[in-house]
Amino acid sequence: MKRPLKILGLAALAAFSAPVARAALSEKDALELVKLVDEKQRNSGDYASLCFVKETERKKEPKVFQAMVYRRDADDKFMILFTKPKEEAGKGYLKIDKNLWMYDPSTGKWERKTERERIGGTNSRRSDFDESRLVEEYDIKVDGEGTLGNFKVHKLKLTAKKGKDVAYPVLGLWIDQADKNVLKREEFSLSGKLMRTTFYPKWTKKFSESKKADVWIPEEMRIFDELEKGNSTVVTIKETDLKPLDANIFTKAWIESKSK
């Protein structure tokens, strides 16, 4: 059951996103809303999808990568295996416990990376492919209501809870009033500077056997680097599969075997 959102253009989104001077949500409602956002995206079982990542940097030719993303949310396991282009094929990221490892088939070596590693050198982070844990990680405040293009949205300001390991301590969220999906997300640095803006123009849902309910998946993420204007990343998620994966898939040996 696909219900793609009809967004004409991201420029139009920004232009029509003027705030409306009324606040319909209470703080409690906002919390419930974000809980719902997390819950809609929660899978709790296994997850596999085919991703296309298009990286555009100013004054450079755009680059397109194809990768498989695997998740086992119950154990907090995560893996990305690049399949295209040829020079990137076989490169992989694997999260074991709290460590993120990167495998480079050209050297045959594993390298420890930080959780904030730019995946494949793009402006996407591991967390972009992970399940949503907003309520667990952030305190939520209402920031009014407004429109984003043709969509009526709830605007929320999220501040990281003390001691939580998050990349961006402050978030701005634009949540569709109709289907409660995130349409826009702004990420701010500790000093309050806007660092990334992400648009989610397409959402799709799939039935999850493990959850016994639908899981909402962003089919497309458009990430704009606000520090380096002109740099952007488009992540397209296709062929999502929520069936159980092989038990031994989240291992270094598995990635190495796929890289040969």
Partner: peptide, 16 residues
């Protein structure tokens, strides 16, 4: 210019 780097607790931070 903007200096951008993570804090030692891995939270993004910036300064102009």
């Amino acid at each position: 210019v903007t200096v951008s780097m993570p804090t030692y607790r891995n939270v993004y931070n910036t300064k102009d």
